[in-house]
């Protein structure tokens, strides 16, 4: 260690503590799948957010002229309708853009709610033995409930009030993310609890206690970063789950109105119009791409957050 003293009182720039997120980003870029996933995901986002400003076809309203409407039904892809038209003559691309905005928002926000709740409950019940019994029985309770009827009851009971407060679409959006979030945190909670039980017995947690780190900072500084990896995976799968659940609820009449488009509701209406399978392919493709790319991004993030994998 003779060069320890030679390495001077003024360490050169690369030795100054670097930002964690810089390291994470550097490693993330090395993960090819994650970069492709990020690219696809941002393309989808640009498509649904900026697309409507460029492609101005009408996504919701049906042409009031019945003869014209009938002539424009179920058209195959063409220059005027790149993805074709649906069973009442609306442009599918415009509907995909509108529906994507809602589906992605519901998927991500509901997943965030579920992951937040699940992580919180998992951390608390894993770390504090006194809370463990009560919180885990609560988790079991939720796991044993039939979830779809529960969501329907929730939306039925509280939907109207929220719709009054925020307007029909925003109100539906809120009630959906709350209902989906409240019914899908249990698996995350169980995974997190199991991990916390393992991590909190490691000696570095004991070391932190001997330093005098209070429990809340032991959790955020030492335990949370070490249980994040499985949470990422669960979260990525949760996005897909939330998108599908939203479509099911909408299909059952408690979500968005049937003329309003989401990817899930487009899938459902196409399912009853099987002579034209392409109408099902587009929203299906969009959902699959979202799920796949979120999965890959989650994978890349998990690797990038692990310093043992993060290469130098």
């Amino acid at each position: 260690m003779s060069d320890a003293t030679a390495a001077t009182a003024t360490p050169d720039r690369e030795d100054a503590p670097r930002s964690l997120w810089r390291d994470v980003w550097d490693q993330f870029r090395m993960h090819r799948g994650a970069m492709v996933g990020l690219f696809v995901l941002s393309t989808l986002l640009i498509f649904v957010l900026i697309g409507p400003f460029i492609w101005t076809a009408e996504p919701i309203r049906v042409n009031p002229n019945t003869a014209e409407m009938f002539r424009s039904r179920n058209l195959p892809p063409s220059w005027s309708n790149p993805f074709g038209t649906d069973q009442v003559g609306r442009d599918i691309m415009a509907r995909l853009m509108l529906g994507g905005k809602v589906s992605l928002a519901v998927g991500f926000v509901a997943m965030s709610v579920a992951v937040f709740l699940g992580t919180l409950i998992g951390l608390l019940s894993g770390y504090f033995r006194r809370l463990d019994g009560a919180l885990m029985r609560l988790t079991d309770l939720f796991l044993s409930l039939p979830l779809l009827p529960l969501i329907l009851v929730l939306t039925f009971l509280y939907g109207p009030r929220l719709k009054e407060m925020f307007g029909p679409n925003l109100g539906t959006f809120f009630i959906l993310i709350i209902a989906i979030g409240l019914t899908s945190w249990m698996h995350v909670a169980r995974i997190v609890r199991g991990q916390v039980l393992a991590v909190k017995e490691r000696e570095f947690v004991l070391a932190a206690r001997s330093i005098g780190t209070p429990a809340r900072r032991i959790i955020t500084r030492h335990i949370l970063p070490n249980v994040l990896a499985p949470v990422m995976v669960a979260g990525a799968l949760g996005v897909a789950n939330a998108i599908i659940t939203e479509s099911v609820v909408s299909f059952l009449g408690q979500g968005f109105q049937s003329d309003f488009s989401t990817w899930g509701s487009m899938l459902n209406s196409a399912y009853y119009n099987q002579t034209y399978p392409m109408q099902m392919v587009w929203p299906g493709l969009a959902i699959s791409l979202t799920v796949l790319s979120v999965n890959y991004v989650g994978d890349g993030l998990r690797d990038a957050l692990d310093p043992r994998i993060r290469g130098r």
């Binding site: 490691r202 570095f204 004991l206 070391a207 932190a208 500084r221 970063p225 070490n226 692990d306 043992r308």
Partner: peptide, 8 residues
């Protein structure tokens, strides 16, 4: 085991 693997 006594050093947190995720901290510098």
């Amino acid at each position: 085991a006594s050093l947190n693997p995720r901290m510098t």
